[in-house]
Amino acid sequence: MKVRIHVSLKPGVLDPQGRAIHHALEGLGFEGVNDVRAGREIELDVDDSVSDEALDAMCKQLLANMVIENYRIERVTA
């Protein structure tokens, strides 16, 4: 099955990339964008037997940096 890991910066962590994207959107003339935060999505194809605990451990040990990032695990039923 497919699993999507959504990795995002924790609130309060300055996001230079998000700020640059925000600036670029404004440069293109889009109005009303209040803030932009850039994240990362990692898609895994795993056996159905892979547990939530194992996915959680993957995130904590490698996929996210817990100092600056949060993660959300989404199992995608194909």
Binding site: A20, N65, V67, I68
Partner: peptide, 17 residues
């Protein structure tokens, strides 16, 4: 070293990009 947990904190993209 920060990623390995031997030092605290993290090194992010330069503020100027």
């Amino acid at each position: 070293l920060t990623e390995a947990g031997l030092l605290p904190g993290a090194l992010m993209r330069n503020a100027s990009q």
